[in-house]
Design a protein around this nucleic acid. Structure first.
Lengths: 147, 147
DNA sequence: ATCTTAATAGATACATTTGTCTATAGATTT
DNA sequence: AAATCTATAGACAAATGTATCTATTAAGAT
């Protein structure tokens, strides 16, 4: 619903790295614990984020993952695109590919509002926003308490 | 992404029945063709809609499916709930169950806008809205041309 | 050089979603 | 009553998403 489990993991991992990646690379193992993501599965997701050039991986001692560029320049849509094949928020709620404003489906105009809201959100929300919010609270990411 | 394939099928089927169900029951076979949904799979989805008391099924000659109540009283959320186990639009984009306004995640407030938009949409959009839109256009549902 | 650390890669396994096949039950028409 | 129509039910199959295991590669520390 809305996004896949994998996409959710990717967001959690990216958020963690953004929040405390300034002091050096974050290890997959630590991410796995903090964000409660199965470790080996997480590694695969991180790999995708590296291939999408959102993260940089460094091996060996003191290795781990860091953001590949300024947090301001990494948007939610980048992360979703890296892990979900056909991410671009669905044009048509009925799944009709040819649906557009010229030839709309029966819910096109009504659905457009929600779609645009989501569309704008993933394009305008960055990891920097997450970092800013993290400064406002005493605890950090909270993922370790999934209850 | 956003909704499952099954949910998409359910919406398409329900829309078709709403649009031309006034003149009598709509057969699964016809729905299958018009909405391009695998027939036997569609039957299972329709069964769920019947069990959720959104549709009424009649067997035998001239049988098929009709809306169980006035189209004004069947909302998108009803259809989604019937086919998706945990439908209620995700409170937290990170999937953190304990996330709420008192103890928000790092994206809680930003995500709330989109979530509320979607939430409101599925609760306020009814099959009647689809019927009304259908009257405005010459063609009906268009699902038969999925390209 | 050797050891340790941590990412990478590939094979495999499990779960869920999606889709198919076949037989049965119930209703209408003749 | 028989034939036809259409939904229902359950077993089965395929595809995809999620998760695990193990060996390898690359880098830093000693």
């Amino acid at each position: 619903m809305i996004i896949s489990q994998t996409a959710e993991y990717a967001l959690r991992a990216a958020a963690c790295i953004a929040v405390h990646g300034d002091s050096g690379p974050v290890r997959a193992k630590d991410l796995s614990i903090e964000a409660t993501i199965p470790q080996t599965y997480l590694s695969k997701i991180l790999r995708k984020l590296v291939e999408a050039e959102l993260l940089i991986a460094t091996k060996g001692h003191n290795g781990g993952f860091t953001l590949a560029r300024n947090a301001k320049k990494i948007w939610i849509i980048d992360i979703l695109n890296a892990v979900e094949p056909q991410m671009t928020p669905r044009q048509c709620i009925f799944g009709w590919r040819a649906c557009n404003s010229k030839k709309p489906c029966l819910l096109h105009h009504r659905w457009a509002e929600v779609r645009n809201s989501f569309d704008h959100w993933i394009k305008s929300t960055s990891l920097e926003d997450i970092k800013l919010d993290a400064k406002k609270v005493s605890w950090l990411t909270n993922f370790q308490k999934p209850e």
